[in-house]
Design a protein around this nucleic acid. Structure first.
Ligand SMILES: [Mn+2]
Ligand SMILES: [Mn+2]
Ligand SMILES: [Zn+2]
Ligand SMILES: [Zn+2]
Lengths: 141, 141
DNA sequence: GTCTAAGTGAAAATCAGTTTCAATAAGACA
DNA sequence: TGTCTTATTGAAACTGATTTTCACTTAGAC
């Protein structure tokens, strides 16, 4: 998500574009997958040293509301975030041994959503995370 | 999961079978899907009035480690738990309007696990939650 | 029955995330 | 460009979920 597009979305939502928000947006894209608030704060500080962690939390909330970011839960007690990709989505493969995160663009959930709709429930979103052992950890262990 | 089976699994893991753990196990099966620690505590108290919330947390941790229970994350800031069904699993449909939870036994994730394995990552578990609007909330709103 | 380590409860601590409030600064408008 | 309104910010205090500490209890092995 480039800055202009993001700025437009924020303004469309009645929100202001601040140096802090630009810093968080850049941190988010630089960090890639599933970064937590502390990590995002640390990275955002490089561009805007005075930014507070509170502002990072508030910004992530605003970004999520405007569809610029989305939350990811990996079960480690903190909420993680990543920039949303327009019209696409991916899922995470979490290695239970080393903690590294890989991703898949493949998603086999849509057909299931159809079946569920036939039962009356309209699915608008889903979360899928896969856990196991990455190639590295599977061989040398 | 019946008591004998559960007791066996606990003992196999070097753990003891206590009145508190029996109460939590029963609470878990009575409550069904995705109950949080407070709810489980409230229910367990009916059978064992002196049980503390701390013990409930510790028991849920033990049960999870022994495969008797599993955690569920619905994104509301608390960890939820449910008894594991042997050899089966299901997924949750969370209504974004009324909060009610429905379930599906259908799971389209396994073929994806195969594809992923071909890339070297061995999937041992997955979490899938679906969000949207239930029949009730979809019609009358 | 005795013994020992696992388990328990209450209180205190931790940790992620939220709220409060006074100061700051987008950006609409003159 | 300057003025004004109101969203945003940072620091400190707070909240709510979960964990840790520690003295006491008890399951279950012998
Ligand atoms: Mn990702
Ligand atoms: Mn369930
Ligand atoms: Zn790994
Ligand atoms: Zn509903």
């Amino acid at each position: 998500m480039d800055l202009d597009r993001a700025a437009g979305r924020l303004r469309a939502g009645g929100r202001r574009v601040t140096a802090q928000r630009r810093a968080v947006l850049r941190a988010l894209t630089e960090l890639g997958c599933a970064a937590d608030a502390e990590e995002i704060h640390g990275r955002a500080r490089r561009m805007h040293p005075r930014i507070g962690l509170v502002t990072v939390y508030r910004t992530l909330e605003a970004f999520t509301a405007e569809g610029l970011a989305q939350s990811v839960f990996l079960g480690d007690g903190r909420t993680r975030y990543e920039a949303t990709e327009q019209g696409r989505h991916h899922h995470h493969l979490v290695c239970l041994h080393c903690g590294r995160i890989a991703t898949t663009d493949e998603c086999t959930v849509q057909p299931l959503e159809g079946t569920i709709l036939r039962r009356g429930f309209e699915v608008t979103a889903h979360r899928l995370e896969l856990f196991g052992y990455c190639a590295r950890c599977r061989t040398r262990r």
